[in-house]
Design a binder for these strands. Structure first.
Lengths: 230, 230
DNA sequence: GTCTATACTCGGATAGAC
DNA sequence: GTCTATCCGAGTATAGAC
């Protein structure tokens, strides 16, 4: 799914630059208007070529979507994969809070993600396998963190790390839905901090994340420890 | 948005019966394959007419969608509106658990709802206002219930009923996303019961809801107390 | 290897005949 | 109230210019 994504580092060829332009245009337009509402002709025009020319670089609209998702994914992975959930669970969970905080500055990509993740419930959807795997990894990483945390601090009797992980993911996703519909009424960051407080973690002091630098490739997105083997 | 939805009660005219047939076909096909994957020609054929004939009864595909959602909404409202959140908060919350439980038997409509609710983040979406209002009402009802409950049982110091309501809604929505992607891995009912347990409510014994009777109009869906004034 | 031109099929939507 | 005919724009595929 994400092979051949290492940076050429040297001088990018003309085709590679065109590809990057297309990807940037797709990300922007998808984020602004969603997947179905945007046509290949729109994206192509935005990137300065015809839709047939675009199809020389990408086999179809679906693959374009997946590559856009994959790219954004690596940006979050940059934050979360700095620290292994098993060894430094608190730090890992702090990273989650920081991502949520930053998400409140980027409704476009957040909306895109929310939209596609629900569309992808259909097994025939091009991004289905992508999201199944993504959620598995997310839950696995959080479960590891909660397990390590419970072992360290002494777990309450009925505590279930996997259930907590699943619920935390649900809270973050569900908050996005409400926030996207009524941004002024929902404070995702505060709600997630409150959720952590309910399970005994005080994350009120977690510092915000710097603004995402605009449209550049991640400098080093090699192996992400968040993608550890289950 | 939902005017002219009272039952004519007398003998339905031919047009009304056709309308009902179209609506039933749309609900079935949307639930089975989603919104975008189903064409007006599919729905029309399923209802026994051409797509142009269908468009005589509904101005467009969007309005068809909204009416389908509205219809399903009233069915859930039947459960939740039996009891006022302020007077009988436990019963009201029990109703929520029962709806979640029943949802696990109907992935089609649940998926449709999840999809549309994220698409509707776009202010230009035909269902935008619908979902904004729906979430406001949901949160308002739950906030009332949690407030009444806190007043009765003695509230913990830092307890915020509105925040709890918002988080519960998020949990239910987010669980749906994960469940739709991997039904075998997620038990929405158990997770919601666990969430209630975390805030001190034992809902393990809530009885399931009977199966939805197939394709008939609600017998009396007049005023829903869940739609009380905010 | 990069791109344009063109065409095919299917979608939603409209106009007007019956 | 329903149909036929038609329009426009979507995703996709192919041929061929450079």
């Amino acid at each position: 799914m994400s092979e051949q994504t290492r940076m050429p580092a040297g001088r990018p060829s003309k085709g590679e630059r065109t590809r990057a332009r297309i990807l940037a245009a797709a990300a922007e337009l998808f984020a602004a208007s969603g997947f179905h509402a945007v046509s290949l002709r729109d994206i192509a025009a935005h990137a300065g070529l015809t839709h047939a020319g675009l199809l020389h670089h990408f086999p179809g609209k679906d693959s374009l979507l997946i590559e856009v998702l994959d790219h954004r994914d690596r940006e979050d992975a940059e934050v979360l994969s700095q620290v292994a959930p098993r060894e430094h669970p608190e730090e890992f969970l702090r990273g989650v809070v920081r991502v949520v905080h930053r998400n409140m500055r980027t409704p476009g990509p957040v909306g895109l993600y929310a939209r596609i993740s629900t569309e992808a419930a259909d097994p025939d959807h091009p991004a289905h396998a992508y999201f199944v795997r993504r959620y598995e990894l997310l839950r696995a990483g959080l479960t590891e963190a909660f397990t390590a945390l419970a072992a360290r601090t002494g777990a309450p009797p009925g505590h279930d790390p996997a259930l907590t992980a699943q619920t935390l993911v649900a809270v973050m996703d569900g908050l996005q839905t409400q926030w996207l519909l009524a941004p002024a009424a929902i404070d995702m960051h505060a709600a997630v901090v409150a959720f952590f407080a309910r399970i005994g973690l005080d994350f009120r002091d977690v510092p915000p994340l710097p603004d995402r630098r605009s449209g550049s490739e991640p400098s080093s997105a090699s192996t992400t420890s968040a993608e550890a083997d289950t």
